[in-house]
Every structure is written in structure tokens, then in C-alpha cells.
Design a binder for these strands. Structure first.
Lengths: 154, 154
DNA sequence: TATTGTTATACTCTATAACTATA
DNA sequence: TATAGTTATAGAGTATAACAATA
């Protein structure tokens, strides 16, 4: 049963979280973690973490993209990308080619196998987005993404 | 100058990130990181990380709250909270008292000093939220938080 | 038998410094 | 002199197992 807290008996039945639930950062982080939790489950069959999915997807849709471009697009630091790229290459999902005009850079390309896997993974990602429609209408989801973009694209 | 990519010369001028920018998880994570980056700066004078602010704020507004209640409210694991609580206690911001009805638990309370600091920190947090109004109208911010809540409260 | 709080520890993620090869 | 990619490494964040005290 619910009981009011009193100074004489400081005992919290129901936590009042209103002081942090009004903060945008708190809510954005909780929502991101909730969605990413489900994303992790759906991508497990393809052995892709969210960041692997992002990297591989950008390579598929931008053949010849460089590591530097991946880093600046995704907000990843170069040293932390090296291992991911090498792992994707070792799995036969992507390949490296000499950059046509910059000898320092490497162009990244998806293999046929990589394109097949990514097509499946992107299908699973779209299905996940549709699943969220049980909590969010299509219009609400669109609005949410638009507002989130306004926050971090400044 | 912009140049179209071609199979003969695979060279990406502008990265097409549409395949990931349509995903809710990606946008929520980027937005959360952007807001938290500013939050970190604004809270630096009070030596409070976002999680410290959340913990301290919950203690101020819920005198007598237990560690277990903090963990379940914030989604923190008990072993990872111990250090934060001890650090806040060592700084003289909070204190531990025996729980009135459960000998296993400890009631957490803000000290007078802790209440003063939190009042200042919460003021800075509100100011930060107002700052976001340059990118988001008050109505948009309200909508955004409402939709984010729908995503993670399920 | 279950729960609160704790310690120790491992694993992942993120960040910094320094190096090479090329521009 | 600056940039792309890399290595090594440090630090922060998050996770699991196991324990003592109490319910």
C-alpha cells in the first residue's frame, strides 16, 4: 500500500524522479539505451553491434569511403575504428582498395557477401523501427527523429 | 567542388548517411551525446557528472531513499553505485542513516551543504534546458521529451 | 530462501600520445 | 607543415560472481 513520507519516518515508497525526468539529456539517453538494447538482440544473428552496422551500412552506400570519412560522420575516433574495419575485412564483408587520388587513404568497399548480409541486417533494422510503432505512431516517430536531429545538428 | 562518384573512380565527396539517419536509435544516441556534452561542461563547476547529478538530485527530492531504489530508478547496477555514494558522502553532500524498518537497507539524505550545491546545480541544468530553446521551441522540447518517454517507458 | 549492500574483477567503450607514410 | 592510418595504452563505463548481514 502507498504511504506518505514523513520527517519522523523517512521512508520512500514511490520515488519522485520528476527533477531528472524533465531534463532532455536524461530522457534522450534512456530512450537511446532502450532502443539500442532491442537493436543488439535483432542484430545478434548477423554478429553486428550498432556501430558495426553503422560502419558497414555507410560502406555499402558509399563505396570507396575512407576511414577518416567514417570517423567524422559517426563521431568515432580513428584508433577505435581500426579494429572494427579489420574485423569486417577478416569476415569477408568488406575489402580495402587503393584510393584513386590520395596515396595515404584507403577506399573501403563492401564485398558481395557483405552486401547480402547488410541487406538482411537493414531489413531487420527496418522491422525494429516498425515494431516501435506499437508505442509510437508513424507521425510521432517522424516528429521524434526530426526533433532529435535539430538537437545534435547544430 | 562537388563531384559525382563513378564506378571507374570510386571517390566519395559527400557521405550519404541516410541509411542510418532514419534509425531512431542512432538519432537518439547522437542527441543524447550532444546534450550530455554540454551538461558535462555546465556541471564541471560543481564536480558532478550526469550520473552524480541524477543520484544527488533523487536523494535531495527523496530523503531516505535507498541504494536499491536509486539503482532501479536510474538503471544502474548496485556495484557501480557504491563508489558514487561513498564519494558524495566523503564530499559532505549526503549522509547515511539507518533505515527505519529494514536493517539491511540504508536511508540516504542530503546534508545542508548538499542541498545548497544541488540547488545551484539544478539551476544550471534548467539554464541549459532553456539554452536548447535556441534550437527547439518550448513546445518542441515538450513534445520531444514526451515522445522519448513513450519510447523507454514500455 | 530472497534481498541489501559490498568487494573484487572482467569486459567494453572511449580517449590520448606517438609513429609512418604521403600530401 | 598537415593529414590518413596505425599502434600502444590509459581511463571511464558497465557487467558478473560471490560474500555477509538481514528479511
Amino acid at each position: 500500500m502507498a504511504r506518505k513520507a514523513s520527517p519522523a519516518e523517512p521512508f520512500i515508497d514511490e520515488v519522485d524522479a520528476s527533477s531528472i525526468e524533465t531534463l532532455l539529456g536524461y530522457n534522450a539517453r534512456r530512450a537511446a539505451l532502450a532502443v539500442i538494447d532491442v537493436f543488439l538482440l535483432r542484430m545478434a544473428p548477423y554478429k553486428l553491434r550498432p556501430v558495426d552496422f553503422s560502419v558497414a551500412s555507410l560502406i555499402v552506400h558509399n563505396p570507396g569511403i575512407t576511414s577518416r570519412q567514417l570517423c567524422s560522420t559517426l563521431g568515432i575516433l580513428p584508433p577505435n575504428l581500426v579494429g572494427m574495419i579489420n574485423a569486417l575485412e577478416k569476415r569477408g564483408l568488406i575489402g580495402k582498395r587503393a584510393h584513386p587520388s590520395d596515396g595515404r587513404a584507403t577506399g573501403l568497399h563492401a564485398t558481395a557477401q557483405g552486401e547480402v548480409l547488410l541487406r538482411q541486417a537493414e531489413g531487420a533494422a527496418r522491422a525494429l523501427e516498425d515494431e516501435l510503432a506499437t508505442q509510437l505512431t508513424a507521425a510521432e516517430r517522424k516528429t521524434l527523429i526530426r526533433l532529435l536531429k535539430k538537437v545534435y545538428q547544430s
